[in-house]
Design a binder for these strands. Sequence first.
DNA 1: CCGTATCCTGCACGATACTG
DNA 2: CAGTATCGTGCAGGATACGG
Lengths: 125, 125
Amino acid sequence: MTKKKEHLDCLNTVKPVRDALDVISGKWKLLIIISISVGNCRFTDIQESIPGITPRALAKELKDLEHHMLIKRLIVESYPIKISYTLDDYAKSLTPVIDALKDWGINHQKKLDGNKLIDSKEISS
Amino acid sequence: MTKKKEHLDCLNTVKPVRDALDVISGKWKLLIIISISVGNCRFTDIQESIPGITPRALAKELKDLEHHMLIKRLIVESYPIKISYTLDDYAKSLTPVIDALKDWGINHQKKLDGNKLIDSKEISS
DNA sequence: CCGTATCCTGCACGATACTG
DNA sequence: CAGTATCGTGCAGGATACGG
Protein backbone atom coordinates (compact mmCIF):
# COMPACT_ATOMS: atom_id res chain seq x y z
CA MET A 1 0.00 0.00 0.00
CA THR A 2 1.36 3.39 -0.92
CA LYS A 3 -0.70 4.96 1.83
CA LYS A 4 1.16 3.07 4.48
CA LYS A 5 4.49 4.20 3.08
CA GLU A 6 3.39 7.83 3.00
CA HIS A 7 2.11 7.51 6.52
CA LEU A 8 5.45 6.15 7.61
CA ASP A 9 7.31 8.99 5.93
CA CYS A 10 5.14 11.41 7.79
CA LEU A 11 5.84 9.76 11.11
CA ASN A 12 9.51 10.19 10.30
CA THR A 13 8.73 13.88 10.20
CA VAL A 14 6.74 13.96 13.40
CA LYS A 15 9.46 12.65 15.65
CA PRO A 16 12.13 15.27 14.93
CA VAL A 17 9.49 17.98 14.93
CA ARG A 18 8.42 16.91 18.39
CA ASP A 19 12.03 16.78 19.53
CA ALA A 20 12.45 20.36 18.38
CA LEU A 21 9.21 21.49 19.97
CA ASP A 22 10.22 19.93 23.26
CA VAL A 23 13.27 22.16 23.33
CA ILE A 24 11.73 25.53 22.53
CA SER A 25 8.15 25.28 23.73
CA GLY A 26 7.14 26.07 27.27
CA LYS A 27 6.41 29.27 29.02
CA TRP A 28 9.89 30.69 29.63
CA LYS A 29 12.51 29.13 27.34
CA LEU A 30 12.45 31.69 24.57
CA LEU A 31 12.29 34.56 27.01
CA ILE A 32 15.36 33.27 28.80
CA ILE A 33 17.28 32.83 25.55
CA ILE A 34 16.34 36.36 24.62
CA SER A 35 17.33 37.76 27.98
CA ILE A 36 20.74 36.15 27.77
CA SER A 37 21.14 37.18 24.15
CA VAL A 38 20.76 40.84 25.04
CA GLY A 39 23.47 40.65 27.65
CA ASN A 40 21.99 39.40 30.91
CA CYS A 41 24.32 36.73 32.18
CA ARG A 42 23.75 36.54 35.92
CA PHE A 43 20.98 34.50 37.49
CA THR A 44 19.51 37.46 39.28
CA ASP A 45 19.77 39.73 36.23
CA ILE A 46 17.91 37.23 34.11
CA GLN A 47 15.29 36.79 36.81
CA GLU A 48 14.71 40.52 37.08
CA SER A 49 14.52 40.91 33.31
CA ILE A 50 11.66 38.43 33.04
CA PRO A 51 8.63 39.63 34.98
CA GLY A 52 6.86 36.87 36.83
CA ILE A 53 9.47 34.14 36.68
CA THR A 54 10.34 32.46 39.97
CA PRO A 55 13.84 31.28 40.89
CA ARG A 56 12.55 27.73 40.85
CA ALA A 57 11.27 28.06 37.29
CA LEU A 58 14.38 29.86 36.12
CA ALA A 59 16.71 27.26 37.64
CA LYS A 60 14.79 24.45 36.00
CA GLU A 61 14.68 26.08 32.57
CA LEU A 62 18.36 27.03 32.71
CA LYS A 63 19.21 23.40 33.40
CA ASP A 64 17.08 22.27 30.48
CA LEU A 65 18.65 24.78 28.13
CA GLU A 66 22.12 23.88 29.29
CA HIS A 67 21.37 20.21 28.79
CA HIS A 68 20.28 21.00 25.25
CA MET A 69 23.54 22.87 24.75
CA LEU A 70 21.86 26.15 23.98
CA ILE A 71 23.48 28.00 26.86
CA LYS A 72 26.70 27.70 28.81
CA ARG A 73 27.12 28.00 32.55
CA LEU A 74 30.45 29.28 33.78
CA ILE A 75 31.72 29.75 37.30
CA VAL A 76 33.65 33.00 37.08
CA GLU A 77 34.56 33.42 40.73
CA SER A 78 34.50 30.86 43.49
CA TYR A 79 34.10 33.12 46.50
CA PRO A 80 31.71 34.75 46.59
CA ILE A 81 30.48 32.33 43.94
CA LYS A 82 29.57 34.01 40.67
CA ILE A 83 28.02 32.36 37.67
CA SER A 84 27.85 33.57 34.11
CA TYR A 85 25.33 32.30 31.60
CA THR A 86 25.99 32.82 27.92
CA LEU A 87 24.41 31.62 24.73
CA ASP A 88 26.20 28.70 23.15
CA ASP A 89 27.08 29.18 19.49
CA TYR A 90 24.82 26.23 18.85
CA ALA A 91 21.87 28.41 19.78
CA LYS A 92 22.42 30.23 16.50
CA SER A 93 21.28 27.10 14.71
CA LEU A 94 17.83 27.82 16.06
CA THR A 95 17.59 31.02 14.01
CA PRO A 96 15.85 29.48 10.97
CA VAL A 97 13.39 27.77 13.29
CA ILE A 98 12.58 30.93 15.24
CA ASP A 99 12.31 32.93 12.02
CA ALA A 100 9.94 30.45 10.42
CA LEU A 101 7.76 30.35 13.53
CA LYS A 102 7.82 34.12 13.82
CA ASP A 103 6.87 34.73 10.19
CA TRP A 104 4.07 32.21 10.33
CA GLY A 105 2.84 33.56 13.67
CA ILE A 106 2.70 37.12 12.36
CA ASN A 107 0.90 36.05 9.23
CA HIS A 108 -1.51 33.86 11.15
CA GLN A 109 -2.35 36.64 13.56
CA LYS A 110 -3.12 38.90 10.62
CA LYS A 111 -5.40 36.24 9.23
CA LEU A 112 -7.22 35.87 12.53
CA ASP A 113 -7.51 39.66 12.88
CA GLY A 114 -8.91 39.92 9.37
CA ASN A 115 -11.57 37.43 10.35
CA LYS A 116 -12.39 39.39 13.47
CA LEU A 117 -12.91 42.56 11.46
CA ILE A 118 -15.71 40.86 9.60
CA ASP A 119 -17.54 40.40 12.87
CA SER A 120 -16.82 43.77 14.41
CA LYS A 121 -15.30 46.86 12.87
CA GLU A 122 -13.61 47.95 16.07
CA ILE A 123 -9.95 48.63 15.73
CA SER A 124 -7.87 48.79 18.85
CA SER A 125 -4.62 50.71 18.83
CA MET B 1 19.66 52.61 25.82
CA THR B 2 20.20 50.30 22.93
CA LYS B 3 19.79 47.32 25.20
CA LYS B 4 16.23 48.23 25.98
CA LYS B 5 15.45 48.58 22.30
CA GLU B 6 16.95 45.18 21.53
CA HIS B 7 15.00 43.67 24.34
CA LEU B 8 11.82 45.13 22.93
CA ASP B 9 12.60 43.82 19.45
CA CYS B 10 13.04 40.39 20.92
CA LEU B 11 9.73 40.52 22.71
CA ASN B 12 8.21 41.39 19.35
CA THR B 13 9.60 38.08 18.21
CA VAL B 14 8.37 36.11 21.17
CA LYS B 15 4.71 36.85 20.73
CA PRO B 16 4.28 35.57 17.15
CA VAL B 17 6.49 32.60 17.95
CA ARG B 18 4.25 31.70 20.83
CA ASP B 19 1.17 32.17 18.67
CA ALA B 20 2.66 29.72 16.20
CA LEU B 21 3.65 27.24 18.89
CA ASP B 22 0.16 27.34 20.34
CA VAL B 23 -1.20 26.13 17.04
CA ILE B 24 1.14 23.24 16.31
CA SER B 25 2.32 22.05 19.68
CA GLY B 26 0.43 19.49 21.70
CA LYS B 27 0.32 15.78 21.57
CA TRP B 28 -1.88 15.11 18.56
CA LYS B 29 -2.12 18.12 16.24
CA LEU B 30 0.65 17.22 13.82
CA LEU B 31 -0.43 13.60 13.73
CA ILE B 32 -3.95 14.62 12.82
CA ILE B 33 -2.75 16.96 10.08
CA ILE B 34 -0.63 14.15 8.73
CA SER B 35 -3.44 11.64 8.88
CA ILE B 36 -5.75 13.93 6.95
CA SER B 37 -3.00 14.83 4.48
CA VAL B 38 -2.57 11.19 3.50
CA GLY B 39 -6.23 10.80 2.74
CA ASN B 40 -8.09 10.01 5.94
CA CYS B 41 -11.11 12.24 5.99
CA ARG B 42 -13.63 10.52 8.25
CA PHE B 43 -13.63 10.85 12.02
CA THR B 44 -13.36 7.13 12.55
CA ASP B 45 -10.68 6.71 9.90
CA ILE B 46 -8.55 9.38 11.51
CA GLN B 47 -9.09 7.86 14.92
CA GLU B 48 -8.04 4.41 13.77
CA SER B 49 -5.00 5.81 11.98
CA ILE B 50 -3.65 7.36 15.18
CA PRO B 51 -2.99 4.70 17.82
CA GLY B 52 -3.99 5.77 21.30
CA ILE B 53 -6.10 8.79 20.51
CA THR B 54 -9.53 8.90 22.16
CA PRO B 55 -12.64 10.33 20.50
CA ARG B 56 -12.66 13.06 23.09
CA ALA B 57 -9.13 14.12 22.26
CA LEU B 58 -9.72 13.86 18.53
CA ALA B 59 -12.89 15.94 18.67
CA LYS B 60 -11.16 18.65 20.66
CA GLU B 61 -8.11 18.82 18.41
CA LEU B 62 -10.23 18.83 15.25
CA LYS B 63 -12.13 21.82 16.60
CA ASP B 64 -8.91 23.63 17.39
CA LEU B 65 -7.46 22.96 13.96
CA GLU B 66 -10.68 24.02 12.29
CA HIS B 67 -10.72 27.21 14.33
CA HIS B 68 -7.19 27.90 13.15
CA MET B 69 -8.34 27.34 9.58
CA LEU B 70 -5.94 24.49 8.98
CA ILE B 71 -8.67 21.97 8.22
CA LYS B 72 -12.19 22.07 6.83
CA ARG B 73 -15.18 20.18 8.12
CA LEU B 74 -17.84 19.30 5.59
CA ILE B 75 -21.18 17.57 6.03
CA VAL B 76 -21.43 15.36 2.99
CA GLU B 77 -24.63 13.54 3.84
CA SER B 78 -27.28 14.43 6.35
CA TYR B 79 -28.76 11.03 7.05
CA PRO B 80 -27.01 9.01 8.14
CA ILE B 81 -24.80 11.99 8.90
CA LYS B 82 -21.40 11.85 7.26
CA ILE B 83 -18.57 14.28 7.78
CA SER B 84 -15.49 14.87 5.68
CA TYR B 85 -12.37 16.51 7.03
CA THR B 86 -9.86 17.95 4.59
CA LEU B 87 -6.77 20.08 4.87
CA ASP B 88 -7.33 23.72 4.13
CA ASP B 89 -4.96 25.21 1.56
CA TYR B 90 -3.79 27.47 4.35
CA ALA B 91 -2.22 24.45 6.01
CA LYS B 92 0.38 24.51 3.25
CA SER B 93 1.72 27.73 4.71
CA LEU B 94 2.95 25.65 7.63
CA THR B 95 5.40 23.78 5.40
CA PRO B 96 8.42 26.06 6.03
CA VAL B 97 7.73 25.88 9.76
CA ILE B 98 7.49 22.10 9.81
CA ASP B 99 10.58 21.78 7.62
CA ALA B 100 12.63 24.07 9.84
CA LEU B 101 11.55 22.22 12.96
CA LYS B 102 12.21 18.86 11.34
CA ASP B 103 15.69 19.77 10.14
CA TRP B 104 16.66 21.20 13.47
CA GLY B 105 15.18 18.25 15.34
CA ILE B 106 17.12 15.74 13.26
CA ASN B 107 20.34 17.66 13.67
CA HIS B 108 19.80 18.14 17.38
CA GLN B 109 19.15 14.47 17.95
CA LYS B 110 22.41 13.68 16.22
CA LYS B 111 24.17 16.14 18.47
CA LEU B 112 22.64 14.64 21.60
CA ASP B 113 23.59 11.13 20.49
CA GLY B 114 27.18 12.24 19.94
CA ASN B 115 27.27 13.75 23.40
CA LYS B 116 25.91 10.62 25.00
CA LEU B 117 28.87 8.69 23.69
CA ILE B 118 31.25 11.22 25.21
CA ASP B 119 29.39 11.18 28.51
CA SER B 120 29.37 7.41 28.79
CA LYS B 121 33.08 7.30 28.02
CA GLU B 122 33.79 9.86 30.72
CA ILE B 123 31.65 8.04 33.25
CA SER B 124 33.13 4.64 32.53
CA SER B 125 36.71 5.87 32.82
C1' DC C 1 -20.83 6.95 12.45
C1' DC C 2 -19.62 11.01 14.96
C1' DG C 3 -19.11 12.58 18.46
C1' DT C 4 -20.56 14.21 24.29
C1' DA C 5 -20.67 13.46 29.19
C1' DT C 6 -18.35 12.33 33.42
C1' DC C 7 -14.88 11.43 36.03
C1' DC C 8 -9.97 11.04 36.88
C1' DT C 9 -4.71 11.61 36.87
C1' DG C 10 -0.22 13.50 36.18
C1' DC C 11 2.65 17.09 35.78
C1' DA C 12 3.95 21.76 34.33
C1' DC C 13 4.06 25.72 36.77
C1' DG C 14 3.35 28.86 40.90
C1' DA C 15 4.00 30.76 45.99
C1' DT C 16 6.73 31.08 49.67
C1' DA C 17 10.39 30.20 52.61
C1' DC C 18 15.01 29.03 53.29
C1' DT C 19 20.50 28.06 52.58
C1' DG C 20 25.84 27.85 51.34
C1' DC D 1 24.27 35.73 44.75
C1' DA D 2 22.48 31.56 43.04
C1' DG D 3 19.95 28.70 43.82
C1' DT D 4 16.74 24.37 46.96
C1' DA D 5 12.91 22.74 49.62
C1' DT D 6 7.98 22.28 50.33
C1' DC D 7 3.70 22.67 49.33
C1' DG D 8 0.04 23.69 46.35
C1' DT D 9 -2.97 24.15 41.95
C1' DG D 10 -4.82 24.32 37.18
C1' DC D 11 -5.37 22.15 33.22
C1' DA D 12 -3.96 19.13 29.26
C1' DG D 13 -4.97 14.85 28.36
C1' DG D 14 -6.89 9.87 29.54
C1' DA D 15 -10.70 6.03 30.64
C1' DT D 16 -15.02 4.79 30.05
C1' DA D 17 -19.71 5.13 29.02
C1' DC D 18 -23.37 6.91 26.57
C1' DG D 19 -26.39 9.72 22.87
C1' DG D 20 -28.23 11.62 18.11
